[in-house]
Write a protein that binds this DNA or RNA. Sequence first.
DNA 1: CTGTTAGCGCTTTCAC
DNA 2: GTGAAAGCGCTAACAG
Lengths: 386, 386
Amino acid sequence: MAVTLADVATRAGVSAATVSRVLSGNYPVAGATRTRVMRAVEELQYVVNGPASALAAATSDLVGVLVNDIADPFFGIIASAVQSEMGAVGQGGGGQKLAVVCNTGGSTESELSYLTHLQRQRAAAVVLTGSGVEDEKHGAALATRLRRLAAGGTRIVLCGRPPLAPEQQDTHQGPEREQPRPPQENGRDGEGRADSGDGIVTLAFDNRGGSRRLTEHLLSLGHRSIGYVTGPSDRTTTRDRLEGHRLAIRARAPELLADAEQFTVHGGAYDRSSGYDGALELLRRVPGLTAVLAANDTVALGVCAALRDQGLRIPEDVSVAGFDDLPFSADASPTLTTVRIPLHDAGARAGRLALGRETPPPGGVATVRTELMARGSTAPPPGPRG
Amino acid sequence: MAVTLADVATRAGVSAATVSRVLSGNYPVAGATRTRVMRAVEELQYVVNGPASALAAATSDLVGVLVNDIADPFFGIIASAVQSEMGAVGQGGGGQKLAVVCNTGGSTESELSYLTHLQRQRAAAVVLTGSGVEDEKHGAALATRLRRLAAGGTRIVLCGRPPLAPEQQDTHQGPEREQPRPPQENGRDGEGRADSGDGIVTLAFDNRGGSRRLTEHLLSLGHRSIGYVTGPSDRTTTRDRLEGHRLAIRARAPELLADAEQFTVHGGAYDRSSGYDGALELLRRVPGLTAVLAANDTVALGVCAALRDQGLRIPEDVSVAGFDDLPFSADASPTLTTVRIPLHDAGARAGRLALGRETPPPGGVATVRTELMARGSTAPPPGPRG
DNA sequence: CTGTTAGCGCTTTCAC
DNA sequence: GTGAAAGCGCTAACAG
């Protein structure tokens, strides 16, 4: 770990400044000099010292991507899309960014901790993906930290979670504690500024709308006993999807509202086993169950497994639907009815936003549309008494 | 991006050196002073400048994890395990490492490029996961780069790929061009040194052995028309798995060897669609096909889908098996016969090795055992004429 | 077009 | 136990 800019300079018979200019390429240098320098670099196998250069230039090429679970394709797809926008992987010189993904495991401390690291590294941008945790204290801490990062010049993009709660008024000015969430459909709350005013841009997923359409689909097939296996209860995504579900019931079959709580099982995680356990629990609670909605596709797979293990056929006996439309859903048997989120597109857009290569939506908030994918796992409920 | 160590020092009424000592915690500081400093840090919301600190200390807390496809759970599981070993996520001070995953997309340029970035950042360690690319030129370039990194103090761990080819003798000393690969089962080639001599440690997966056992399983069920859908042909994993398959045939049913090439379809990627297309192609080529082996579980899912679309039942008409035992395999219907690789354990071990928290295996190379998981997707072939 | 001169913000001897 | 000072390797004005 020895060879420095100075060594290269000596070898090439030029000054360190010249070498620096050749390497960064953003400054006129004579052709001959350039070749000489390049040769010296080659011969010495010189590699720029990142920290030194970052310190001097006060910039960094790091872009952090925070995900809740890197082993879940939902995040993998988004992360991969973000990374795909970071630019052609040149051999070194250019302003290419390095997107690194950080796995928080859904832990709030871990999330904060990664943000600290990223802040230390003076990251160029940070993309936070997926569900946020609904915790008053964490939410405030997170918002503060993100605003501070943004103020320091780091671009912040929220992808797949709702926008930050409006800034806390430190000058306590009243007991106004209503409406903790900013309006969703109205894209003008930033009063026309290019972002929400603090440089943080949000790409929210229309979880509520998608979920609502999904439940409507089931309702119109004739289902009246619809179980729901939620995700972890403190997640924004969980809440939004459940809300969409309830909205559909309220609008189309209000008589079912009374049983809603009874028909809802709160899963502990977005994984297969909470689907499995949840389905079993629903079967126990709801005698005439004809359909099960799952928090996402992975959970839905667990639901299917449990149902099958109980000798139930899908969709003849029970319909099942997921959410997200991950690649495996189209291949499952039967093919899984779900709600498609254009994860790749959203991730790519988040990447562009992070690099400042795309102008932020008005108000700093855009909602990504979701689409119902009606497939083989949903059908009309079985006739009375099978 | 303003507040610096000096600001904190002023505020706390001490010198910058003292603040630094308090923050790094590895030096005796009076209790009172420490509290005073901490308070100043708190009040000023001070965050260490990573580049500056890395420059001065000539160390970094970055650990890079290179993966071929971040959207593939195979890599997600390994990466997540590596990350889980990086230590309790403290609030900042300690020597905690930041594991960042870099998605190469299987591209060799991208791989090299990420290594350059990591080298620039003076990464503490680099973990390369999964299949390497079998390309003479790239192999050499990669080996050189990794050795250089290792020489510079960066720990290198190969997880899920074969060890590096032995060092190129620059002093051309003979036409010795045999055995481009080091012995696998013999763990003593490093002559008892704690690693292969260059500080690079390898955790190879026993793909060949697992594949061999899988084919033996099919053979002993009575299958004689076994199709094989491979992964991308330039990958070490692809080659090893195919070799294991051929080995089993050679040992147990040499009469099938003649048709081996005919029964092998080379898939373009480790994805669902090459499984789908591969299965169709096999059906075309092999009239009495009774079993299909896939490069991995994801490919196997594609194979299943194709088979089903052709009206074939699994396993009654055709048996199918995958490789890796990803979580979804146990949930597929029918449950998928496959070969289990302890991905999480391997990743965790790679993480420990990367941090120097575990002593490297003798010779620097360890082979991770794989295990046959015989499940519902394989059964004896149908009787003659169905 | 190229060299000189200052730092960037932190860590770390070396004194006190 | 704490301070002063000397860089770490690079970039970015300024001069020439």
